[in-house]
Amino acid sequence: MNKSVYSSQTTDKPSKRHLITVLVDNEPGVLARVVGMFSGRGYNIDSLNVAEVVTNDHLSCITIVTHGTDEVVDLIRKQLNTIVPVHSVNDFQDQESAVEAEVALVYLYLEENNKKESYKICDIYRARKIENENNTTIFEIAGTSERIDSFISDIEKICKIEIVRSGPIAISSLLRE
């Protein structure tokens, strides 16, 4: 249900995290249409990721993590379908069999006293060091958002960091025809 002041049926239902992928024609303004629908109707965007996935047909995949009651997420799905360049909408909350991953890049402010310990944590999480021309310490870590969260919380205890994250993306793991 919407959040109109006339509404009263919304309150007590649980709000859940949903990962939604939207396959769209990669044409100008398409991201603005999708994002504008969320802001215009007061829905949440927790993370957002966009990239072209089928180059020949100019198709892009927009991955959005949102949260809301089942009713709200159902409305989001239906609203997305009204957007002309949208091909399909997939709500991964419905599918047990999805694989999800996110990438983070982490800059470590290393000092003599935390160097060894930091490298050890990176090793535990299988974060990969990325060589760069400035010889600074940048690690790449991929995996579920929870895994990245827990990496961050561990490493932050001993080392100052700066981080960027891609937001999660997902794909169905079901056997294809």
Binding site: M1, N2, S4, Y6, S7, Q9, E71, D74, L75, K78, Q79, N81, T82
Partner: peptide, 11 residues
């Protein structure tokens, strides 16, 4: 005719 009108305000 518009699916997004269903269950929008009233279930």
């Amino acid at each position: 005719i518009e699916a997004s009108n269903i269950n929008k305000n009233v279930k």
